[in-house]
């Protein structure tokens, strides 16, 4: 479904070129939920922007359903970390969700249906006519998720979407994402720096190395499909996986240290 091949990104500053991403190759099957986790500053955002078609890679390719991605593809939706900045503050919640559908030229009834469904799915039906800034941070991120869901993408990219919300809201939102993913069968690439979150959410976890970034490990999460905050997190297997990802990230950090020293 989504295929990233030998992706490299160098920020060109003449003498001070920065290689943010060195050589990334991985693939997401259709309907998979994959978490990307890595040490901070490992180029996760850069990678995501390349995949979303917002930024051209220096070399390598991104393919979505066989087509090369050079501009934001129509079958892809992105949820950004900065929920407050990714919503149109001058539009109601409903208008925010509906805007991309209008651009797709969907008929009015279909739009209304999709907006209602997606707001229902994130539990914001009662707030359709509010403005985003009248809502709490977690609710704003729900609006962004509803907008992505209503867009009916084949692939959903999420860039640390819960990094800026409080812990309880975060647990709710994690379950929301699992729920939506299971119901819609959409392919999800979820970027995070939180190891627990990666293991809890993902069917697979890709561990990235420090910058310049490569895929350091590819771990299949063999936890049951039905997960919940209490039992899953106490599951022995969860702890093992968590420990493995943690060890990988520590290794990634340490191996990067000498490189950063000079």
């Amino acid at each position: 479904m989504l295929k990233v091949t030998a992706l490299q990104k160098i920020y060109n500053g003449g003498a001070s070129a920065v290689e943010a991403v060195r050589d990334l190759t991985f693939e997401l099957a259709e309907g998979e939920l994959v978490c990307l986790v890595g040490p901070s500053g490992c180029g996760k955002t850069t990678l995501l922007k390349c995949i979303a078609g917002l930024m051209p890679p220096t070399s390598g390719t991104v393919e979505l359903a066989g087509d090369s991605v050079t501009a934001p593809p129509p079958d892809m939706a992105v949820v950004f970390q900065e929920y407050g900045r990714s919503l149109f503050a001058w539009m109601s919640v409903r208008a925010n969700v509906e805007l991309p559908l209008k651009e797709k030229k969907l008929p009015k009834e279909r739009r209304r249906e999709l907006v209602a469904q997606s707001l229902e799915a994130v539990g914001l039906t009662a707030f359709a006519d509010s403005y985003p800034w009248q809502l709490s941070g977690g609710m704003q991120q729900r609006v962004a998720i509803a907008r992505a869901v209503a867009y009916e993408p084949k692939v959903l990219l999420m860039d640390e979407p819960f990094a800026a919300v409080d812990a309880q809201t975060r647990a709710d939102l994690e379950d929301l994402i699992r729920n939506i993913w299971q119901r819609l069968g959409v392919t999800v690439l979820f970027v995070t720096h939180d190891i627990d979150e990666a293991v809890y959410l993902g069917e697979r976890v890709l561990v990235l190395s420090s910058s310049p970034t490569v895929v350091q490990d590819d771990i299949t999460v063999d936890l049951p499909a039905e997960r919940d905050q209490l039992t899953t997190r106490q599951d022995e297997r969860f702890t093992e996986l968590r420990a493995r990802v943690y060890a990988q990230i520590q290794q990634a950090k340490n191996s990067a240290a000498p490189a950063a020293a000079h």
Binding site: Y11, N12, G13, S16, V18, A20, G41, G43, T45, T46, K49, Q81, E82, Y83, G84, R85, G137, A164, S211
Partner: peptide, 16 residues
């Protein structure tokens, strides 16, 4: 500016 201190992504095209 939002209350979340997001800042530009690391290594954004600023140097260029």
């Amino acid at each position: 500016t939002d209350t979340t201190d997001a800042g530009p992504p690391p290594g954004a095209p600023a140097p260029r």
